[in-house]
Amino acid sequence: MAVVEVEKPQDGVAIVRLNRPEVRNALNTEVRELLASAVESLNQDDEVGAIVLTGGDTVFAVGADLGEQADRDVVGAIRAYTHQAFWYSGKPVIAAVNGDAFGGGNEFILQCDFVIASGSARFAQTEVTIGLVPGGGATQRLPQAIGRQNALYALLTGLPLSADDAFRLGYVSEVVKGNAIDRAVDLAALVASRPRLAVRQIKEVVRLGLDASFEAGIALERRGYQLMFGTQDLREGFASVKEGRAPKFAGN
């Protein structure tokens, strides 16, 4: 049984699924390496326009595999495998979250572009409860997502946020009844149907703009706008509006 599964439920969409139910999808080195490999492969797959990251039906991921970490020394911690593959993915990544997303599981969600959650979803950075500091980006990305004070509340207490609270704070885009995966796949298909060069450029400008000054971010946006005038998809978009028909984008 693969601990990370990849499937393509419909045209343009790939699902990357955590599959270690016996340990509530705890994240060990094997899982982390397979996740990075899956994202790299899907970014090279021209058939895929958007990616959904999900876990099980009752738990997303409870965080790092403590059995793997318990005996590490400082050198082992320095050498431990981590990655930011979802953050740097050229293709959009949507998180579909059912149940608990704790520790490293929540840090993978923080790398995604937006989040669809079931009503039972919970989000937490629990590292402080065992004397650890987050190591997958939460101290930097969580304040960007929900603000400094809300992030410190979560980081310093280790208490979980409900799906409704995460929605209220702007961390979750939609809370759905039942399993989040169906809605996430529908949205991924919608995104995949959009002009792919424009989608890629929007994602890149937003990501780079987060670490730039406002003026630099506006300059990046302007350059992205200008580049689209060299694409056939923009010509098709203009023509479809003029002719009153649905556009047929080719991704070029």
Rank of each mutant, 00 (worst) to 15 (best):
A26G: 06
V206K: 06
E127F: 15
A77F: 10
G99R: 01
A239N: 13
F114D: 00
L152W: 05
D73W: 03
I218R: 13
Q140H: 07
A188V: 09
L156Y: 12
V59A: 05
G158R: 14
V176C: 09
E174C: 01
T54M: 04
E204F: 11
L142S: 03
G55N: 02
V176W: 02
A151S: 09
F86C: 10
F102Y: 11
A250L: 10
V176R: 07
T139W: 07
Q149M: 07
C112L: 00
S213T: 14
S89H: 07
A138G: 10
I181V: 14
D165S: 06
L155P: 10
G131H: 13
A154M: 15
R24F: 04
Q10N: 03
A101H: 00
E215T: 04
T126F: 09
A166E: 00
R72K: 08
A212F: 03
G158S: 13
E47C: 05
D164A: 13
L110I: 00
G178D: 08
L27R: 05
L197V: 14
D100I: 00
G158W: 15
Q201D: 13
L208V: 10
F238Q: 14
G136K: 02
V172Y: 01
N252L: 11
A188P: 09
A2V: 05
T129R: 15
K8D: 06
G99L: 01
T29C: 03
G104I: 06
R17Q: 13
A117V: 00
W87T: 01
G170E: 04
L132D: 12
L190R: 11
I78M: 15
A2T: 09
G224W: 10
E107W: 05
E5P: 01
N98E: 04
A145T: 01
L169R: 01
E236R: 15
F108V: 02
N106A: 07
L66S: 05
M1T: 08
V16G: 07
T157C: 12
D71R: 02
F214E: 08
G224S: 11
L190I: 09
V13A: 09
Y225S: 11
R183K: 14
N25I: 03
E7K: 15
R207M: 07
F238P: 04
L197H: 11
A61S: 15
G12W: 13
Y88R: 05
